[in-house]
Amino acid sequence: MLLHPAIMALLLLSLLVTAMLLPAALFALQILRHWNMQSGSARQLALERKTYLISTLLTWVFTAELLSLFLFIYSAEALSGQFVGAMCATGVLNINAWGWPTLWLKIVTFFAGSLWLIMNQLDNHGYDFPLIRQKYILLLLIVPLLLAGGYSQLSFFSALNPEVITSCCGSLFSADAQGVAAELSGIAPKNALLMLTVAALILCVTAYLVLKQGTRLTALAFSITALLFFAIALSAIVSAVALYIYQHPHHHCPFCLLKAGHHYSGYLLYLPLFVATALALPLPFIARCQAIPSLSATAHRWVKQLSRSSLALYLLFLVIVLLEIAASPLRLLSQ
C-alpha cells in the first residue's frame, strides 16, 4: 500500500460512497415493496419525504464517482514515476490484475450513474413521482457495480508493489503483442479513420431522425449508434489519432495523451466523447417516458435537447480529432 494523497482521497471517496449507498439500497427495497401513490398512510408519507434525502444522497454519490474516475486516471498517471517500467498510467494499471477491471468498472459506473441522474432529474419534473420504481430498480442494479468498483480499487491499491517490474504502453499497445489492446493497435490507421467517418455519418442521420420524429425507435437507434461510435472512437484513438499526436508511427498509448507533454490533448478528446455518450445513452428511456401523462411534455423536450447536445459534443470531438491530425507533421494516409 502506498500512502499517496490521491490514493487516500480515492479510498476516502469510495468509503463515503459505500456508506451512502447502503442506506439508499435499503430504501430502494422499501420503495419497491411499499410504494403506493394512492395511499395516504403514514408509511407512504414517510417514504415520500425520504425519497428527497435519498435522491440528494445519490446525486452526491454519482458526483463523487465522476470525480473518482477522473482522479483515478490522473493518479495512475502521477504514480507512474514510482514503478520500474511504468512510463504512464498503462504501466501502473498493469502492476496487478485489479488495475484494468477498476478502470472499466469506473467507466461503466460513470455511464450508469449519469443515466440515473438524468432519470432522477426527469422524475422531479413529474408531480406524481412517475419514475420512482424504475429509478430504484436501476439503483439496485448499480449498487453491486459500485461495490465491485470499490472493492476492486481497494485490492488494486493494497496490492501495489513497488518491486514489481511492469510493462508499459510500449509493449501492451503494439501490433506484435497479444490481446485486445494489441488487436486495436493493429488496425490500420486508414481503416480506423474510415470507420470513424462512417460511424459519424450514421450518427448524424439517426440524430436527424430523432430530432425530426423523436420516437422510441429513432431514439434507440441513436443510442445504439452512439455506443458504437464511442467504441469506434476509442479504438480510433488507439490505432490512429494517438499516432498523430505523438508524431510517431508506432506509439499507440491512450493514456500518454493525458500528459502535459502532449498539451493534455487527451482531456480535450475524452471529455466531449464521454459526456456525449452519457447524454446519448438515456435517450430511448426518455423517449418511452413521452407516454407518461405527467412527463410527456418534458420528455418530448428532453429528447430533442439531449440528442442535440450529444450530437454537438460528438461533432466537437471530431473537430478536435481533425485539428490534431492537421496539426501533426506525421502523414499516415498518403502512403
Binding site: L2, L3, H4, P5, I7, M8, L79, Q82, P162
Partner: peptide, 8 residues
C-alpha cells in the same frame, strides 16, 4: 516515493 509517502 519518499515525498508521496511523507505527504500521505
Amino acid at each position: 516515493a519518499v515525498f508521496a509517502w511523507r505527504q500521505g
